[in-house]
Design a protein around this nucleic acid. Sequence first.
DNA 1: GTATTATTGTCTCAAAGTGAGACATTAGCT
DNA 2: AGCTAATGTCTCACTTTGAGACAATAATAC
Lengths: 241, 241
Amino acid sequence: MPSDSSAPYLPHLAYDSVIFGFAEGRLKILIMEYHRTKWFALPGGFVRADEALDDAVRRGLEERTGLADVYLRQFHTFGSMERSDGKAMRTILQMSGYAPEEQPWLMDRFVSVAYYALIDYHGVELQPDALSDSIAWYDVDELPPLLFDHTRIVERALETLRQNLESNLVGKNLLPTRFTMKELQHVYEAILGKELRRSTFQRKMLATGLLRRHQKLREGKAHKAPYLYSFALEEVDTETG
Amino acid sequence: MPSDSSAPYLPHLAYDSVIFGFAEGRLKILIMEYHRTKWFALPGGFVRADEALDDAVRRGLEERTGLADVYLRQFHTFGSMERSDGKAMRTILQMSGYAPEEQPWLMDRFVSVAYYALIDYHGVELQPDALSDSIAWYDVDELPPLLFDHTRIVERALETLRQNLESNLVGKNLLPTRFTMKELQHVYEAILGKELRRSTFQRKMLATGLLRRHQKLREGKAHKAPYLYSFALEEVDTETG
DNA sequence: GTATTATTGTCTCAAAGTGAGACATTAGCT
DNA sequence: AGCTAATGTCTCACTTTGAGACAATAATAC
């Protein structure tokens, strides 16, 4: 949070990030809540005057999730006039104990560059930021009403994610290192919002040549034990299975 | 061109446009030249404080080409530090008769939102802007060296155009209303940079159901006269052919 | 007029990809 | 040991695609 209006941030420019995770068979998104106002919004931030745009987003992402080396993709820049809402911003500042007059630039009109990230849901420690009181996972199709145009931003993120599903290595980025074919299929189904044919999916995935099969595991469950797979990408697997 | 540093433009934010046209069987791009420096760059501009981003780009496009209702698509926002070059900007201003000290904001670091447009090459009147001395069509694969990161921007524009080829209605936007199947094929080939099979292309195009066939024409040439086609999109063709 | 020629529209056939289901295998349960 | 249900694989029909062949035809040549 800059301390005065001659802040080291680029004025009128922000970023928002749609951070996807996968758990309980569902696609999830990280949402921030300002407790006092009960308003929800995407995690976002500002770009320092001497900082690359991509770096700013990665910085914010690491501050909130503790994760570096995250799969991150810019997908659209939102620049309409209606999207900015100085009044809402003023209220958020007031409710958070800031004097809006000391941060007048925050009430200005903003153009926002939107990114989406794919992260491993497990192994993330969530960190609320200076203004928000909490940050939590929400089901993609059970989102609360979001501030500004953030609902639309999420929609566009989902559209882009679906379009680039093949080239996104969603499995590698949303799942732990090892996973079963069914888990991978569930990820695709959650993103596409529809069921896929089991045999066709398996055939297609194996045909990519990107999957490495390990010795059978996942014994705890029941019936026939599935293989575990991982993505084989320039890493050499040294084990014997 | 704003007249002072308290300009009605958003600081640090610009847009660049990659304007595609099709002529002589080749894909073309509009490039501006600053004659005195012999430097080349993409046509771009700035966003007014009270103007939507998309509107700013359309405004600039209309100023340069006289065209409204153009197919326009945002594809990426470039925000690295290296892309900005205050020295080059200073030189351009000086050579164009401006005093850089009066436009200090122009030498700042800029984040640029890039768009590409598809327009009908014929029926365009080119208008140079305040700083540039000329604007002209260049063959996509015979571009002069461009300022800043503009060569990279063109590359990304082409990549995006190729990826979205199916959904872009390139024919409708790059060709005149009526065209032959071969002309349409040439457009696709110019964009993809490779030859396509004639029979397969025709089969696929007709299968989309988007093409409307008119009475045979294009008689001037030689041998069998090809049909003329147009895109059938919610317009009802009233003629008998 | 008639033959020639190159271009166009269409069809055929094989190869590859996809949807849908069947079959055999097997880990845990009874 | 037998049953159950999930898994890995295979089969078959259908669709899509690559590659080429064929017939139709408008301008030119004679």
